[in-house]
């Protein structure tokens, strides 16, 4: 029995919270999704063939889930010839960690987890530390340290150009000198001829889902029956309203402010970050059809719920220049 068969048998049971795959209703992908899938497979194979030591960054979110699914397709009947790496801040939703470990076990994948333990020990946390500084230390610096420690020369990320306007400017193969993105001096990227040459100290960030939209991601998840973290689906959850954001309190480390009180609301997440810094949205979308309908009619963008992004307009660009994805 092939590994894929085992997975197909096990998953529905392991994922009671996930609606059953709608794949039967969509026996084939639309030409649009097939083109996007084939493009992502091509990119992943180029990386596997041309780099010495690649890694796939796995945030456990919906985009990472699509990326992982496509990586399995790209190298079938073999396994993806690179490990997965999760940068855990220590403030990840428990559901995210559970899902991550289940996926790694189910597919027999090599999973690396890295946390900036020094910063955490020094007391850096999402309540006391200024948000920009917190994300720099726990995400950007943690990522850079992990990449350096393992000597990875290429790292896949699930970022899409439709997410944010600095990302809309980035190449599929994003050349980094000492992790730093130089947006004014990007290499031309012609056809599908990716220039993968690196000088010592250089590395590449590679975005196989560059040309996908949020809606494409959800359409694909539905068509392929890809398991995702249940937090994406609307459910009654215990929340607190803070600074205009709806926070789901995920563990007892919450710092309460005066007069704050817990409420039960029907909410879901469009994007998953650290739980004290990611706003949920009120929603009735309890399944994939519901989510897709909601996105189609939405009036705000996906990253609006990320408190980390908001402060400065060019914030994403600034973070990318520091070496963030």
């Amino acid at each position: 029995m092939r590994a894929a068969d085992v997975v197909a048998e096990r998953l529905p049971e392991a994922h009671a919270a996930v609606p059953s795959p709608a794949a039967a209703a969509h026996p084939r992908l639309s030409p649009h999704l097939r083109r996007l899938e084939a493009e992502a497979i091509f990119i992943m194979r180029e990386v596997a063939a041309e780099f010495r030591n690649p890694v796939m960054l796995y945030s456990v979110g919906k985009d990472s889930s699509v990326m992982l699914h496509i990586a399995r397709k790209a190298f079938f009947p073999g396994r993806p010839p690179f490990p997965l790496m999760h940068i855990a801040s220590g403030w990840d939703f428990r559901d995210v960690i559970t899902h991550r470990d289940r996926m790694a076990a189910t597919y027999g994948l090599d999973l690396l987890v890295h946390t900036n333990a020094e910063a955490a020990a020094a007391g850096v946390n999402p309540f006391d530390t200024e948000t920009g500084e917190y994300s720099r230390l726990m995400l950007t610096e943690a990522l850079k340290a992990a990449l350096d420690q393992h000597g990875f020369d290429a790292a896949f990320g699930g970022a899409r150009r439709d997410e944010e306007k600095a990302r809309a400017k980035e190449r599929v193969f994003s050349h980094r000198r000492g992790h730093v993105w130089d947006p004014r001096n990007q290499r031309p990227e012609l056809w599908r001829l990716f220039n993968t040459r690196l000088a010592p100290g250089d590395s590449m960030r590679v975005f196989p889902l560059s040309n996908w939209t949020e809606l494409d991601v959800w359409d694909y998840i539905r068509a392929e029956g890809i398991p995702i973290v249940p937090l994406y689906f609307a459910a009654e959850r215990t929340v607190v309203l803070r600074d205009g954001a709806v926070l789901v309190v995920d563990d007892d480390r919450m710092r309460w402010r005066e007069a704050e009180r817990l409420e039960r609301r029907r909410v879901r997440f469009r994007t998953l970050g650290c739980w004290p810094l990611t706003g949920a949205v009120e929603s009735d979308a309890a399944d994939l059809d519901g989510i897709i309908a909601e996105i189609v009619s939405s009036r705000v963008s996906e990253r609006n719920g990320r408190l980390v992004d908001g402060a400065v307009q060019a914030s994403m660009e600034a973070k990318k220049r520091e070496g963030y994805f």
Partner: peptide, 22 residues
Amino acid sequence: LLLDGLEAEREQGITIDVAYRF
């Protein structure tokens, strides 16, 4: 300004690199 996503582009009012929109 919807397209010119880089700081330098917004400051100078020009486009430096390709932006992909959907």
